[in-house]
Design a protein around this nucleic acid. Structure first.
Lengths: 127, 127
DNA sequence: CAAACCTTGACACGACAGTGATAAGGTTTG
DNA sequence: CAAACCTTATCACTGTCGTGTCAAGGTTTG
């Protein structure tokens, strides 16, 4: 039986059992379950728990941010939308007729949205 | 003078002046300043403010998460550490002698740390 | 010069993240 | 079978995010 129960896993990884459950339903590290529903932590999960702690400590990230990073790499569309927002930055217009620039920006906004966010924009409509 | 003051910018973008300042010191969108220190929002900033709102609304991200995404793309080392953590996932050991596996994980952890986090590890030491 | 802006800093408040503790009930095991 | 686990759910508390508001003081402008 090369798997630990939640208390044992907590022991070797330095997390509390509470946090192990919390981490699990944040989607970061899920333990497999015994027939009766007990969490079982194998070598891989213990490894990830230890490196997770290390990651948080050394980088100053929050659990939630790691969760977000996970979301970013799982959700292609989300990553694309974020990417698009950052990429749009350098696009500074040089010469637009005075009085028109504000409006021009509005239109550009529309164009960009249509071009970049793709199916996300369905959800947005005219709100 | 093709730039708006903070109130005007708030007006056209739908943010409050308060939030414009908040967004600024979260590092997301910085307005240039007039000689006396007033924030001045040009076309580009207005554009970004509008698309930022769109991004938040359509993707369900928080401001803080966009801020984190920014940090991720500015801080190479941070991105590397996160990447390394996710990449380590599939590396599941197949056969380790019974009784040794727990220890093996410990060592692997050390190796991985040394290999991936680079100069970050200086900060971590033996804490 | 007074009204209407702007600045930074602070207090406040609801929502949520992170975490412990505790309750009510099922499982494993000496 | 009782002790020592496990499960989910909930209450509670601290801290941070997102946001408004207000204070004290500088700037712009009719």
């Amino acid at each position: 039986m090369d798997a630990l129960t939640i208390h044992e896993a907590a022991q070797t990884t330095g997390w509390s059992p509470r946090m192990l459950r919390y981490i699990e339903n944040s989607g970061l590290i899920e333990a497999r379950r015994s027939p009766s529903g007990y969490r079982l932590y194998g070598p891989e999960e213990l490894q990830r728990l230890r490196t997770l702690r290390e990651l948080l400590d050394s980088s100053g990230m929050s659990l939630q941010e790691v969760g977000f990073a996970l979301r970013l790499r799982r959700d292609e569309e989300l990553a694309g939308a974020v990417e698009a927002w950052f990429e749009a930055e350098p696009a500074r217009p040089e010469h637009v007729p005075a009085g028109d620039w504000l409006n021009w920006e509005q239109e550009k906004h529309q164009r960009l949205l249509a071009a970049t966010t793709g199916s996300i924009s369905q959800l947005t409509e005219t709100r």
